[in-house]
Amino acid sequence: MTVRNRVLILVSAVAVLAAVGLASVLHASARAERRDHTQAGGPRVPSGTVALNGSGRLVFRNMAWGPHRDELTSVPAGDPGGPRTASGVRCLRFHAASGTGVCLQAVHGPVSDTYRALVLDARLRTLDHYDVPGIPSRARVSPTGHFAAWTAFVGGDSYAGTNFSTRTAIVDTRSGALIPSLESFRIVRDGRPYRAADVNFWGVTFADDDRTFYATLASKGHTHLVRGDLRDRTVTTLHTNVECPSLSPDGTRVAYKKRVAGLSKDAPWRLYVLDLRTMRETPLAESRSVDDQAVWKDTRTVVYALPGDYGADLYQVPADGSGKPRRIASAAVSPAYLG
């Protein structure tokens, strides 16, 4: 084959490949555009004012197609399926308590997205912002509103790298003092100091004393529930196989996802509640795998997200293992009950 023929083959192949590539990009961007049009049969989402100090409201990230997709919206806590008031603030993950909110959002850079955490006041104005080192995963505000925490996935960094880790930060929303990584805390495991290169933390939940928190610690393939102390900067292991704990409003129990043996690798978790006094585990009535940090609607009910047609839907289930799960809102994620 002559050089000329080879070049000809290459040029024609480049033309075909470029056409295929371009078609796929155009197809994908047309699909993206459809998401900006209001979805038929979806919830009504008018613009309005969303406040974080009102009571009896539920605030979450609206995922329904339309102009207010991905914005924080609020609904009456008693009628979560009703019309949503859109705030204009876009978040990937959100939580709020006592008039303080934390919003993890993407910042569109010239090339790739970066992420940041906004600390919001009761009128959703930004008080402070912090860089988040990876893809946002969990967000939580303490019951007092004085502390906020978030977890991000930090991605692989080698050829076809498949090693991921998490980074969890806690900020004092009054002073702005940031703990960039819980990995700087001393770890006490089974009564002894512990350290390892592969320690990861995720899913912080706060008690109402502005000092105690709970979180997941993972190392060597095991997860632990830890109780953390913000003043001593220590974490102490309490229980194994606990991920994404969520402390009940009365501080006695933790709702969490437990990796149950024998389930598929893609859906390995079930919702459980752990009694912190007796360390007794109670499986909840949700039979599907839950990959979320639940929130407590009240002392008897937990709310969590499951994958849905438009990303995720919200469900509730009794916290004592009775009853059965009920869908309370579709196309919604990251709920926070106010007041």
Binding site: I9, L10, L17, S24, V25, A28, S29, R31, R35, S112
Partner: peptide, 29 residues
């Protein structure tokens, strides 16, 4: 990803086209 808003399928398709191009350069040159 920017042009397509989370168009991962487009990223993988273009990646495939680019990989085929690499293979072709090897075979031809």
């Amino acid at each position: 990803l920017r042009a397509t808003v989370d168009g991962y399928d487009a990223v993988f398709t273009v990646s495939f086209c680019v990989a085929v191009l690499g293979l072709l350069v090897l075979v031809l040159f």
